[in-house]
C-alpha cells in the first residue's frame, strides 16, 4: 500500500527518509496491535487452561466448603448472580427504555438535553460510588445487606446505557413510519409502543444486552450491598453470594484450592458474558440486514 503512492509526477521523488518514516510508523502500529492483543490472548488462554480443569459437577452444584476442605463449588454464587441480575434488570430495563422513549419522542427540548447529558454523566460514575449510594438507600433502611441492594446498584448502572441506546435506536426509525400510524388515527402512545418500539426491537435488545453484559461482571457495587454469602439464599432481603464477589474473595485468599475455584468461576463468568455479547452482535447484524 505504502508504495501505491507513486512519485512519477515529474516532481522530486519522495525522499528515503520520508519513506522510511512511513514504513517505521506502519511497523509501530502493527506492534501496538500485537501488544494490545497479547494480554487478551494471555487472559483467555489462562482462563481456559486454569479454569477448565476445575469445573466439574461439584463446582456447579455445591456450596463452598470450609477452609481446608477440598471440593465444594460456587452453585450458590451462580444462583445469587442470577437473582441479583434479575432484580437489577427488572428495575433497570423498564426505567431505561422509558427514559429512552422520553428522549426520542418527547425530548427535543431543554429538559431532554439535560436528561441526555445527565445520563452520559451517570454512565461515567465509578461503580464503587454506586455501591455507596445503594448501601445508603437500601442497606441502611433495611438494616441488612441484601440481594435487593445489589440489584438496585446494578439497575442504576444499567439505566444510562439502556436509555441512550434505546433513544438512538428509536431515532433510527424513519419518521414516515410514525406518520403512517398517525395518519391512520392511531394515538401517540399506541404508535410509540406498537409501531416505533416494535420496529426498533432488535436495536433496543442490543442495548439491554450490552448493559447486562457490562453489569454481569461488576464486583465493586456488590461489595457492600449484596455482600456475599457462603450458603444458599433466595430471599431478596438477605445477603447473597455473587459470582464476581466469590472470585474476588477467593483470588485474594491464600489457599490454592480457592485459587483454583476462582479461575473456574472466572471462566464461567466470561463464558456468560462472551456468549451474550456475541449473541447480541449476531442478532444486531441480522436485524440490520432485515432492516434494509
Amino acid at each position: 500500500m505504502a508504495n501505491a503512492i507513486s512519485t512519477d509526477f515529474g516532481a522530486a521523488p519522495i525522499s528515503l527518509w520520508r519513506r522510511g518514516k512511513d514504513v517505521g510508523v506502519t511497523i509501530a502500529a502493527v506492534a501496538a496491535v500485537i501488544l494490545v492483543l497479547a494480554p487478551l490472548g494471555a487472559i483467555f488462554a489462562y482462563l481456559v487452561y486454569k479454569g477448565i480443569g476445575s469445573i466439574n459437577w461439584a463446582f456447579l452444584t455445591q456450596t463452598p466448603k470450609p477452609v481446608g476442605e477440598a471440593g465444594g463449588g460456587m452453585a450458590n454464587a451462580i444462583a445469587g448472580s442470577v437473582l441479583i441480575l434479575c432484580l437489577g434488570s427488572v428495575l433497570g430495563v423498564p426505567m431505561g427504555i422509558g427514559a429512552g422513549i422520553y428522549l426520542a419522542e418527547y425530548g427535543r427540548n431543554r429538559l431532554g438535553n439535560f436528561i441526555r447529558f445527565t445520563a452520559d454523566v451517570l454512565n461515567g460514575v465509578p461503580s464503587i460510588i454506586v455501591g455507596i449510594v445503594a448501601y445508603g438507600l437500601v442497606v441502611l433502611t433495611q438494616k441488612h445487606f441484601s440481594a435487593l441492594a445489589g440489584g438496585v446498584a446494578l439497575a442504576i448502572m444499567m439505566i444510562p446505557t439502556i436509555t441512550r441506546t434505546t433513544e438512538e435506536m428509536l431515532l433510527l426509525v424513519p419518521s414516515q413510519v410514525r406518520e403512517a400510524a398517525y395518519g391512520l388515527g392511531v394515538s401517540r402512545w399506541r404508535t410509540t409502543l406498537s409501531i416505533t418500539l416494535r420496529t426498533a426491537t432488535s436495536g433496543v435488545i442490543t442495548g439491554v444486552m450490552l448493559a447486562f453484559a457490562r453489569v454481569a461482571g461488576e464486583t465493586a457495587p456488590l461489595l457492600f450491598t449484596a455482600f456475599g454469602n457462603q450458603f444458599w439464599n433466595w430471599r431478596v432481603n438477605q445477603p447473597t453470594a455473587a459470582l464476581p464477589l466469590q472470585i474476588f474473595t477467593y483470588a485474594i485468599s491464600p489457599f490454592d484450592e480457592w485459587h483454583r475455584q476462582a479461575w473456574a468461576g472466572a471462566l464461567i463468568l466470561i463464558i456468560l458474558i462472551v456468549v451474550s455479547v456475541s449473541a447480541v452482535r449476531i442478532a444486531a447484524s441480522r436485524g440490520m440486514m432485515k432492516g434494509n
Binding site: 424513519p174 414516515q176 413510519v177 406518520e179 403512517a180 400510524a181 398517525y182 395518519g183 391512520l184 388515527g185 392511531v186 409501531i195 416494535r198 420496529t199 426491537t201 432492516g291
Partner: peptide, 16 residues
Amino acid sequence: RRRIGMVFQKPNPFPT
C-alpha cells in the same frame, strides 16, 4: 385522522 385516510409521498408500510 381516523375519519380521513392519508397516503404519503414515500410508501411507508410498517416494516415489521
